[in-house]
Amino acid sequence: MDYHQFLQEFLDALGPLSPEERQQISDYYEEFICDGIEQGLSEEEILSRFGSPQEEAARFREENPCSAPGNETAVFTPTGAVQTLDLSAKNVRITLAAAGGPLQIHYRYNPQRVRVENWQEGSVWHFRQSEIKKRWWHLFSFSAPQDELTIFLPPAFDGRLLLQTSNAQIRGKDLPVLKQLQAVTTNASILLENLGATTGLLKTSNATIALSHFSGNTLEIHSSNASIRMADLRAVSVSAGTSNGRIAAKKCQIREMSLSSSNGPITFERLEGERFDFTTSNAPITGTICGNAEEYRIQTGTSNAPCNPLSHSAPGQNKTLTAGTSNAGIQISFVGG
């Protein structure tokens, strides 16, 4: 049997595949065979590694649960009008997407490995995903095969989204304005762009949170051991905290803004607001605020490094700027709006 024939039988034995994936797998194996031949092995020697095409196909299917038939995308729709989606999952990446049609959840999963329940209670739609078999390899969080779930939001949806997953990213773009957005995960980033929520909570660990073009009322952002990046935010109050990571904010209009880190710098550019509170340690605080320094009651402090501006206050000042760090400088300047 030559290798073309081997590949043909192997691909046939794999069962139904998308044409794209079939091509990818074919290219992948062909490359190994060509490289083996170049290394001086004979075709038979190389093919004998695999056993029969059917044996290799069985092994391949076992190692590639996502390519195996049985993993299909299920579409979930609520039974009535929904004001709140309450979703909890594990090891599932969540994507929020704008939809022209109704509110829907698309979830590609293997029913032998994962159980999904969803039910509606009044206007609350509950969606629970749980794993039937515990997979120990989540100890190495990043190596878990990730399931993908997409929530399609119609432009008129203005309710609450309460999302909880773990070890997987939450991301979304161009979304409607919600009453409440709660996005909680672990060990993976949260990336959101162009959306609104009256109240927002974004929380992860050991990974970055990036938020841009957001408008809302109150917003809380928490991570650890990683950075938080914010750009073009409009809100009444924003509080963002991490540890051992940078916090960066750019072009935000926020009445009350509190940024806190440790061992990570705080940098900002063109912030507008009435109360700023920046706290970190062992790292600098630098940035620009749009406005007049005279209007702010300023309280700044660091150690072993230059500090500008220095604390000062005068009667009649109703805006405040507080900045504290250690072993690194503070450099904040005021620029014209």
Partner: peptide
């Protein structure tokens, strides 16, 4: 083996 490496690379 080849079949083991494939999903790792994809992932």
């Amino acid at each position: 083996s080849e079949s083991t490496l494939y999903p790792i690379l994809k992932r």
